[in-house]
Design a binder for these strands. Structure first.
Length: 583
DNA sequence: GCCGTTTTCGGCCCGACTGTTTTCAGTCG
């Protein structure tokens, strides 16, 4: 049973209890526990063995007993009983916009509705409007909501979301009356996947700006329209929300809209403890005096702490850290000066080595490494020994052309084969400047097998970096079922760097494991894995993973000067020569 | 059900918007 599966069980309990009408704080407790289990870096089975379940935030006596029951018996009597009381198919009804626990309970108890299909039928026949508190408009809203739910678009990937968002930000900034426009929500926190887009605007003419916003030419439907807040659905099905406050309240608004919800709840609890009340409009002290916050830092300062960077605002300890004045130092988005994994036309890239090098130089990088695929990845036209030798000549030629400000290394993205062997023999590997070893095939092997494959790569002294370690593909394909305790320990023991692959559909290591790796002092490497020259800037997304994972910049080898990287590689080379892998 | 710089009991975040109501409940972020 994985952390994810346990978290889902508690989420389900929370939903069912809410419909049942249990006191709200009990359901909140289950939801909070689910969220912190989802964010755990360590395997919950291990925490159980070590008797540390109650150290998980939000997990007390009752919930840890339930976790133990699930882990030891594979089921939970409490949930089974609950499912007999409240039909679990009602949870789907909760997914419909404007339907929450109270209405779901009303539909179920008063009209016998237990699933989405029955809800739709009741709305179509006009049965819903007969219920107390319901009317014609509510009925129509629910029908629309069901349609929206059924055609809902998947969460967008971060890269695509920023593209769309930048277009909207440009437009918003051109609207008369807009003094400032910024992205809020999960986008501003650089979360790997984004649901809706959130924007915040400062303006002294909110009505006028809102009017322009909801009449934008791409709007399909207006979901809500007020003075401070409006929400629209585009023809593309993307939903956008806009908040507006005057400039003197903009800091509070931006802080509020950036979230996360959990961060804000925790922050408000803290505010309350020290005698303040916090909202998107400002802060009130105990006497009811308003403290206006024009910038976000004012909000945090009033509450007795330094400004917390948005990427940290997930309620994963950042508020306590801020209060203790020990927020982590985060990687500067401009701090990457090398990129050690990119492709070229020599395998499946679309740009020549020269084009990649020129773009890298233009971007201000000091060092790049061309890592085309090794032979066995046939679909990517992987290189063999002979073509690698030819490629070395080409790299030397390009190096001459681009000059000394950019150093070009020759590496390889080495295939870890299904049986755990590496695609190239050691003699070939030792001639390369750098080796990135990656899994691309047979990712669904059982945990022991696939962990063993990766272990063999980590233990090979010629391997410097493990590329996109889990192999996940967002938003759909989960990563391999790795035993992370073993993998991370091996990486630490062998001084191998783990890649944070910047491709928006990978972002792998993910932030959970990157944070754990950082705590263990493991080296990491943020690479573009670019397949064309114009993809080099995507390292910004890899940087966001490192920031969200609290990674100390010193552990990120792309922040090192060339000499330090070359010395690190050199040391590994010496180690490799002194070790006989078979002995 | 959880939790403690006021607490081991008694609290537990805040405001905007909508629709159905004549003052508020429900939902959402």
């Amino acid at each position: 049973m994985t952390n994810q599966e346990i978290a889902e069980i508690f989420e389900k309990i929370a939903n069912l209890l809410e419909i049942k009408g249990e006191v709200i704080y009990k359901t909140l407790a289950y939801r909070r526990a689910a969220e912190s289990i989802r964010n755990l870096a360590e395997d919950i089975n291990k925490l159980h063995q070590e008797n540390k379940l109650s150290e998980i935030p939000g997990v007390g006596k009752a919930i840890s007993e339930k976790i133990i029951e699930i882990l030891t018996t594979g089921k939970l009597e409490f949930l089974e009983k609950l499912e007999k009381e409240v039909p679990p198919s009602l949870i789907e009804v909760l997914q419909v916009p404007d339907v929450g626990p109270k209405k779901a309970a009303l539909f179920w108890r008063e009209a016998g509705i237990t699933n989405l299909m029955e809800l739709e039928r009741a709305a179509n026949t006009g049965e819903l409007r007969q219920l107390p508190g319901m009317g014609e408009k509510s009925e129509k809203r629910i029908l629309d909501g069901i349609k929206m739910y059924q055609r809902r678009s998947d969460r967008m990937l971060l890269g695509q979301a920023w593209q769309v968002a930048n277009t909207w930000l440009d437009w918003l900034r051109s609207v008369p009356g807009v003094l400032r426009a910024e992205a809020g929500g999960s986008l501003n926190r650089w979360k790997p996947t984004i649901g809706d887009l959130d924007f915040v605007v400062s303006s002294n003419n909110p009505l006028e700006v809102m009017e322009t916003f909801v009449n934008h030419k791409e709007v399909n439907r207006i979901l809500s329209h007020g003075e401070n807040k409006s929400s629209i659905e585009l023809q593309s099905r993307t939903q956008i929300q806009l908040w507006i406050q005057p400039p003197e309240r903009f800091g509070s608004l931006w802080q509020y809209s950036t979230g996360s919800k959990e961060h804000n709840v925790h922050l408000r609890e803290h505010a309350q403890r020290i005698g303040y009340s916090l909202s998107e409009r400002g802060i009130q002290d105990a006497q009811g005096n308003e403290i206006l916050c024009a910038v976000e830092a004012d909000v945090y300062q009033t509450l007795g702490m330094p400004w917390i960077p948005p990427e940290l605002r997930e309620d994963r300890g950042e508020i306590q850290a801020a209060l203790n004045r020990c927020l982590p130092i985060l990687l500067d988005p401009k701090g990457l000066i090398s990129d050690l994994h990119m492709h070229s036309t020599w395998s499946d890239g679309r740009s020549s080595i020269e084009e990649m090098a020129l773009a890298a130089k233009q971007k201000g990088l000091n060092l790049i490494c061309i890592c085309d695929h090794s032979a066995s990845l046939g679909i990517a036209r992987g290189l063999n020994k002979e073509r690698l030798a030819e490629q070395r000549l080409e790299i030397d030629r390009v190096q001459q052309n681009v000059g000394k400000s950019l150093q070009i290394l020759q590496g390889v993205e080495l295939e870890i084969l299904a049986d755990g062997k590496l695609d190239f023999p050691d003699e070939l590997l030792q001639d390369l400047d750098l080796v990135v070893a990656s899994l691309h095939t047979s990712l669904r092997q059982p945990r022991e097998t696939i962990t063993g494959r990766l272990l063999m790569a980590i233990r090979n002294p010629h391997v410097d970096i493990i590329g996109h370690p889990s192999g996940r593909l967002l938003p759909t394909r989960e990563g391999a079922d790795l035993d992370w305790d073993i993998i991370l320990q091996a990486a630490a023991d062998h001084g191998v760097a783990l890649e944070i692959n910047s491709d928006p559909s990978r972002l792998d290591l993910d932030e959970i494991h990157a944070r754990r790796a950082a705590e263990m002092g493991i080296l990491m490497c943020i690479n573009s894995d670019a397949h064309s020259f114009d993809a080099l800037p995507i390292t910004r997304f890899g940087i966001s993973v490192a920031r969200r994972a609290w990674v100390n910049p010193e552990l990120v080898i792309n922040t090192w000067p060339n000499e330090k990287i070359l010395a690190w590689l050199g040391n590994r080379q010496v180690m490799a020569e002194s070790i006989h892998p078979e002995s």
